[in-house]
Design a protein around this nucleic acid. Structure first.
Lengths: 408, 408
DNA sequence: AAGATTAGTCAATTTGTTTGATTAAAGCAA
DNA sequence: TTGCTTTAATCAAACAAATTGACTAATCTT
């Protein structure tokens, strides 16, 4: 709907712009913030006072450049607020506590086996309680709890409170109002996303996507998913399912691991199927970390898989580039970092050999910085993002998340 | 860069929101505009007065619903402003004059044969003069001149005035500062875009994309191009080359028309190559309109081409949907309307047979409403779009196009 | 005919940014 | 050392656009 705007929204947006400038450019002086944002020194001064009052930023030491009065630098106060992220899947629940600077302060890991909704909620609530009741947090501000679930999600938006969710990965979960169930036990705001989108936001806010306004993120979880950041904002699409790279059909021959009626690239990256396929060659793998050893040992069966993986990814990203013309592609998720590095290293060459002579530069490949906990860190970023990100839609009326965090 | 905002931008944005609401929903009363936009009646009243003063909208007849005072309706005043669009290619220059409601008032067509930049500019200037000096225009406001060129463009953004352009289709054009050259002879603002992007904006503003906030547009010109509208805004990508569907590789077997080292879907839709291929079967075609006759005659060679075309498009749009999860796909350009209708009719079925069982709905196919002059109409829309579209970036500082049109 | 409802405008208020003036701190040059 | 210049930062007043509240007018309801 086309809605207008007014002063209140202007205020909220400038608040976020100033915070984000300090976050990304800090330590930085008020005067520099004003220059960068094109706001006046007075406006910046007022907003910074509000940020200081709330403990979201802190003053650093004085700094002087050439002449004139030295400037007091500003930077994010890591302990100014905390957020909880949950990465939930059939086999595990990871819970982490992060501070405002994105540092992981505490981490809790539980192995599970396709629990029922009730069991899952109970465990989640207990993890959240544990994470937030440490003396380190004290009475600091808690932005909220973010939950990442395996996508694609079928989100039924009946009303804001009781969205129901159908995660494809949980056959026994059917239209579970997970948000509502959590709200009954947890007082802070709750955010639910598919894990790939959450990880995308995590990389955008704290990771390899900082300062990058257009990128695609490929998320290697139980399968292959992803997310898109376009013009600095997460683009989720009509049904919150953009960036489903795993559903792309194979361009050439299909993967030897593929066994479905509609062969698609995601099958090659499906961890369960990969473990099965490796077992046929008497290679026993149970966790993604162990794939790193196969790589270091130059195991020929695994290297064969990896070679094919690169081919499939190259074809996926060629199409991605022609469609959305992005600058950077970030790789992240549960695979070991050395494997991502190897892929990021080889893909540009493979893609060049497949590309048409096109005048735009090839995309740059980067590895995600969040490591194997990308989904949990991403989930924890959701509440922070909602409160602080300078998304342009903050400026427009009928937007729920325009309020500032409370003073205490 | 992260820049702040202030009241001035708020004003500009609300002005656009009110105009667009009247344009899309009119005839509509002030009170209804206020309800739709979440602005107060007073704010709407003020903005409408400014719109009336500038003749961009006009009052219609009184209308009463149930009780209360009858409301005066508002609607766009077609003669309130005019805009010129040029569609330039190796073989033709089409110039059109459109009014504020998107009606084509005058059309000029010239056949050309890969002219030099100087010859082209001369012809363009003369066409613009002819179009704007009719009595119908009188002293009405001219928004500007839009120029659509065959993409992909290699735009060199040295500074705002002297962007140079390398259209791939013009081998003898090398870094031509076409904007600067036109500005020397034309007083109104000038906008240059690749023809597919221009046509996309045209469909978004006046055509099948009205009211649709996420869609992909496939543009059949000399080859196959396209554009994306995401969250209501044109998304052009890092290098202004998003939506280059023609560069996608073939998913299965390549087209019989393809003859390049890197086979890509665009080759199948390259009109020159298609004409050549048809000639091999003794079918002589020189203009796209004639393809319509082949279709109506059920010419087997052409139907074979069409069948393959649908297969290739289906694979392209499946990937499109998984990547950007859009609602609608619009087909437009130089092919005859009946062919677009046939494609739009058959594609959903072909795609369903190829799709994974995915829970999101399949995209809806629509035919563009601009007809064969989509590129020229799109080009004409560029200045209007710049002046009136409620793109969110209007709200942010350091944005050149925030001024309101002059009163006279 | 009185009351209710709705459209629309005028005048005063609100609110966040901007402008202008002022203070303070530090380097530069004679 | 002293005066000049530059820069940072804040205070107070001005400004600008949306909002609020009061009011008029038109029409339907009962």
């Amino acid at each position: 709907m086309l809605t207008g705007t007014n002063l209140t929204y202007t205020k909220a947006y400038n608040f976020r712009i100033v915070f984000e400038t300090i976050r990304l450019q800090g330590p930085i002086s008020r005067a520099d913030v004003a220059r960068r944002t094109s706001l006046t020194a007075q406006t910046v001064s007022n907003i910074v006072n509000r940020l200081l009052e709330r403990n979201f930023v802190q003053e650093g030491k004085k700094l002087q450049k050439k002449r004139g009065a030295p400037s007091t630098t500003l930077e994010v106060n890591p302990d100014g607020a905390f957020s909880v992220g949950l990465d939930f899947n059939r086999d595990h629940l990871t819970g982490i506590l992060v501070d405002l600077a994105g540092n992981v302060k505490t981490k809790i890991f539980h192995e599970v086996d396709t629990p029922s909704p009730e069991e899952a909620i109970k465990l989640m609530v207990s993890v959240v309680r544990q994470l937030t009741s440490t003396p380190e947090v004290g009475d600091a501000y808690i932005c909220g709890v973010g939950v990442g679930l395996p996508g694609p999600l079928d989100i039924n938006k009946n009303n804001e409170v009781s969205n129901t969710i159908n995660p494809k990965a949980f056959p026994n979960w059917n239209h579970v109002p997970i948000g509502k169930m959590l709200k009954e036990h947890i007082a802070v705001p709750i955010f639910i996303e598919n894990n790939a989108s959450a990880a995308t936001i995590g990389e955008k806010w704290y990771g390899a996507g900082k300062n990058i306004s257009n990128f695609a993120y490929a998320f290697f979880g139980a399968g292959l998913g992803g997310g898109l950041v376009l013009k600095g904002n997460l683009y989720e699409g009509q049904n919150q399912n953009s960036g489903e790279f795993g559903y792309f059909p194979f361009m050439g021959e299909k993967s030897p691991i593929s066994d479905s009626d509609h062969p698609h690239v995601g099958e090659h990256f499906n961890l369960t199927k990969l473990y099965q396929w490796l077992r046929e060659s008497d290679i026993i793998v149970k966790r993604p970390e162990e794939l790193g050893n196969l790589f270091l040992d130059k195991n020929p069966v695994f290297l064969n898989w990896l070679q094919l993986a690169k081919q499939y990814l190259a074809s996926v990203f060629i199409v991605t580039q022609y469609m959305i013309d992005i600058e950077v592609i970030i790789l992240g998720g549960r695979l070991p970092h050395i494997i991502f590095e190897d892929i990021a290293n080889d893909l540009p060459g493979i893609m060049t050999s497949l590309r048409n002579d096109f005048k735009t530069p090839a995309p740059i490949f980067k590895c995600g910085t969040a490591g194997v906990d990308a989904a949990a860190l991403g989930a924890a970023t959701l509440p922070i993002f909602d409160l602080f990100a300078a998304q342009t839609d903050v400026l427009i009326k009928n937007n729920s998340s325009k309020e500032e965090a409370p003073k205490k």
